[in-house]
Deep mutational scan, measured.
Amino acid sequence: TETYTFDSEDQAEEFAQRAQKKGYTVEKRKENGKFKVRVE
């Protein structure tokens, strides 16, 4: 499980979609103005 942090929602969304296409489970959340994407 890895967590990635992005400054913009667009970046987080793009990353999450790519990860989902590769078959990963993706969980997105906003925390302290940053966008976190957890991938497993």
Rank of each mutant, 00 (worst) to 15 (best):
Y4E: 02
T3I: 12
S8Q: 08
R18K: 11
K21A: 12
Q20H: 09
F6Y: 02
G33M: 03
Q17E: 12
T25N: 11
E27F: 10
S8N: 12
E40V: 15
F35L: 03
V39I: 14
Q20F: 07
R38G: 04
Y4T: 03
V26W: 03
K34R: 09
V37M: 02
K30H: 12
E2H: 15
Q20M: 14
Q11A: 13
S8R: 09
R38F: 13
R29T: 14
Q20V: 12
F6W: 02
E27A: 08
Q17D: 10
E14V: 06
V37P: 01
Y24S: 06
E31C: 08
V37K: 00
R29I: 15
E31G: 03
E27S: 13
K22F: 12
R18V: 10
E13S: 06
E14K: 09
D10C: 09
A12L: 02
R29A: 12
F6S: 00
Q11R: 08
T1P: 12
K34Q: 10
R29E: 11
V39P: 01
R29V: 15
T5D: 07
A16G: 04
K28H: 09
E9G: 04
A16P: 00
T25C: 15
E40K: 13
D10M: 10
E13H: 05
G23D: 03
T25D: 10
G23N: 03
V37S: 00
G33H: 04
R18W: 14
F15N: 00
D7F: 06
K22D: 14
V39H: 01
K30L: 12
E9H: 06
Y4G: 02
E2W: 15
N32D: 13
A16H: 02
Q17N: 10
E27L: 08
V37Q: 00
D7A: 06
G33T: 03
E40H: 14
Q17V: 11
G23T: 01
V26M: 01
E9K: 04
Y24F: 13
R29D: 08
E2I: 15
E40L: 15
R18T: 10
K22N: 14
G33D: 08
S8C: 09
E14M: 08
S8L: 08
V39N: 00
G33C: 05
R38Y: 14
E13R: 05
T1H: 12
F15H: 02
R29H: 12
Y24L: 13
Y24A: 08
F15D: 01
D7C: 13
F15V: 02
R38E: 08
F15T: 01
T5N: 04
K28T: 15
G33K: 03
G33W: 01
E31P: 00
K34H: 08
N32T: 03
D7E: 10
A16R: 04
E40M: 15
E2R: 15
E27Y: 11
G23C: 03
K36H: 14
K22M: 15
R18I: 11
E2V: 15
E14F: 06
K36N: 08
V37C: 02
A19V: 10
Y24E: 04
F15Q: 01
Q11S: 08
K28Y: 13
F6G: 00
G33L: 03
Y24W: 08
K34V: 10
G23Q: 02
Q17F: 07
Y4M: 04
E40N: 12
A12S: 04
K30P: 07
K30G: 06
